[in-house]
Amino acid sequence: MTAETDLIKLYSERILALAADIPLTDRLPEPQATARRRSPLCGSTVTVDLVVRDGRIAEFGQDVKACALGQAAASVVGAHILGRSRAEVERARDELKAMLKSDCPAPAAPFDGLEVLMPARDYKNRHASIMLSLEATLEAMEKAESTACA
C-alpha cells in the first residue's frame, strides 16, 4: 500500500462525518472549571468547560481546533460525556492510549466509538491530537473537584 492510500484510509468517511458533527461545542457561560490542552506537534487545541455535580459531568462544552482525527475523537467524547464520572473518563483515556500505542482493543462502551480511530495507530504524530478531548476533560474535572473542596 502506498503512503497516499494509507492516508486516504486513515481519513475514512466515518472519521470525516464525526469531525463534521461535533456535539456540545458551545462554551459554558458559567463553567465550574475550564481546561485547555494543546498538541505541541501539530498545534491542535481543545478547550473544555464543565460543571460537575455529585461526581458526574452535568454540563459540558468544548471548543475544538484540531485535525479531523482530533475532531472525530472530540465528537465521540461529546456524544457520551454527560453523566460520566472521573473514573469512567480516566478509563476511556487509558484505553484509548493503549489502543493507539499498544495495539489493545478499542475503549469500552460508552466510548467504544473511538475504535474508528484505530487506523491512526501507525501515525504516532497524530496520537496527541486524538487524546486532547479526554485529557482536557480530566484536567477540568480535577480543577472542579479541587474548587469544590476548597
Rank of each mutant, 00 (worst) to 15 (best):
E88C: 03
A120D: 09
R86H: 11
R14S: 10
I8C: 03
E139D: 15
E95C: 02
D21W: 08
G43R: 10
E88T: 05
A66S: 14
V76M: 04
G83E: 03
T47E: 15
I81E: 00
G43T: 06
A74E: 05
L41H: 02
L132E: 08
A3F: 12
C104W: 00
V48N: 02
C42A: 05
I81Q: 01
T147A: 12
A108T: 15
P40S: 06
K101H: 11
D112W: 09
A106P: 06
D49Y: 08
S102E: 13
R121T: 07
I81P: 02
E13C: 00
S39A: 15
R38M: 14
E59H: 04
A144E: 08
P31V: 07
C67W: 07
R84N: 01
G55F: 12
H80L: 00
T147R: 13
E142H: 10
E142P: 00
K124R: 09
L18N: 04
D63C: 00
L134T: 02
S146E: 14
E95I: 09
A136H: 05
P29K: 08
P110D: 04
R38Y: 01
L7W: 12
L100K: 03
T34P: 01
L50H: 03
E13A: 09
L28Q: 02
S129V: 02
R93W: 12
M1P: 10
Y11H: 14
V64M: 06
P31H: 07
L28Y: 09
H80C: 04
L100A: 07
R37D: 01
D26F: 02
V51L: 11
P40E: 12
A140V: 09
R121A: 07
P107I: 11
S75V: 09
M118S: 15
A35W: 01
S129E: 05
H80W: 03
I15C: 08
V52G: 02
K97L: 10
L41F: 12
P105F: 10
D122W: 13
E88R: 03
